[in-house]
């Protein structure tokens, strides 16, 4: 799909319907984005279910990976939100799996990075904040508002502090979603630009000699993007834990 647009680095983010579905004036088409969401779902399930189907006492490779994911996310929650946070374990685990598989699958050439869509990351971030607010209010009622009122602050400064706390709380879904989205978007654009540079140099006569330089850069950047893909999934998951910790223990 990139071939027809040549060197346009934005084309890789275009969403194209595969099976058009329109219900009540809403466009619910099965697009390439949807396809890769289903692929991510399939891969995550394959890792966690097929990988553990052996139920082996001594795990194989895939089962080890599944167990490591489980313990990694489990420890992350326990360290940031305490043992009480373990009630959100399936939620955080699903988030982590979805984001990490989206990021890594997106690195495969000609694939589509689901997390490079702001609407996806923003929806996930809103979901996290919604869970935080709903659980916090259900658990603590109005006491949850203490989240915005740090203890031990002089009454003179309190209005400003509360204002800052409210703004930072409101900014959370934005920062959470934009961080992931921007990292994936920028990484993919950079990769595409360097890749296209290789292609145009090869087609430019004598300049084809220096074509390996951007190619080497692409290779290095791919490794770097792999790091970013994993790191951003980790950051997304651990920030979710931190926010959930606020819902479990409001008041600093």
């Amino acid at each position: 799909m990139a071939a027809e647009q040549g060197i346009d680095p934005i084309h890789q983010f275009r969403i194209e319907p595969i099976i058009p579905i329109h219900i009540g004036g809403l466009d619910l088409s099965f697009t390439n984005s949807s396809l890769f969401m289903v692929i991510v779902l399939g891969l995550a399930c394959a890792l966690m279910i097929l990988g553990t189907s052996g139920n082996a006492l001594v795990p194989g490779k895939i089962q080890s990976a599944a167990e490591m994911s489980y313990e990694f996310v489990g420890n992350m929650i326990k360290q940031t939100a305490g043992t009480e946070g373990m009630r959100f374990f399936p939620f955080v685990f699903a988030l982590f799996m979805f984001v990490i598989f989206s990021n890594i699958v997106g690195l495969v050439p000609y694939s589509f990075a689901v997390t490079s869509q702001i609407v996806v990351t923003f929806a996930l971030a809103i979901l996290v904040i919604a869970v935080v607010i709903i659980y916090g209010v259900m658990r603590h009622g109005t006491h949850f508002l203490k989240l915005f009122v740090p203890s031990g602050v002089s009454p003179l400064l309190l209005p400003f502090i509360v204002l800052i706390e409210v703004i930072s709380f409101v900014a959370r879904p934005i920062s959470l979603s934009v961080r992931l989205f921007a990292n994936m978007l920028a990484g993919h654009i950079t990769l595409k630009v360097f890749g296209a540079f290789v292609a145009s140099l090869l087609g430019a006569g004598a300049f084809a000699v220096i074509a390996p330089l951007p190619l080497a850069m692409t290779v290095i950047l791919t490794g770097f993007e792999l790091l970013v893909a994993v790191l951003q999934a980790y950051v997304f998951a651990i920030l979710t834990c931190v926010y959930l910790n606020d819902a479990i223990h409001p008041g600093h």
Binding site: L28, S33, V119
Partner: peptide, 8 residues
């Protein structure tokens, strides 16, 4: 594309 993306 938002509606289809969000639904999926």
């Amino acid at each position: 594309t938002f509606s289809s993306t969000l639904v999926w």
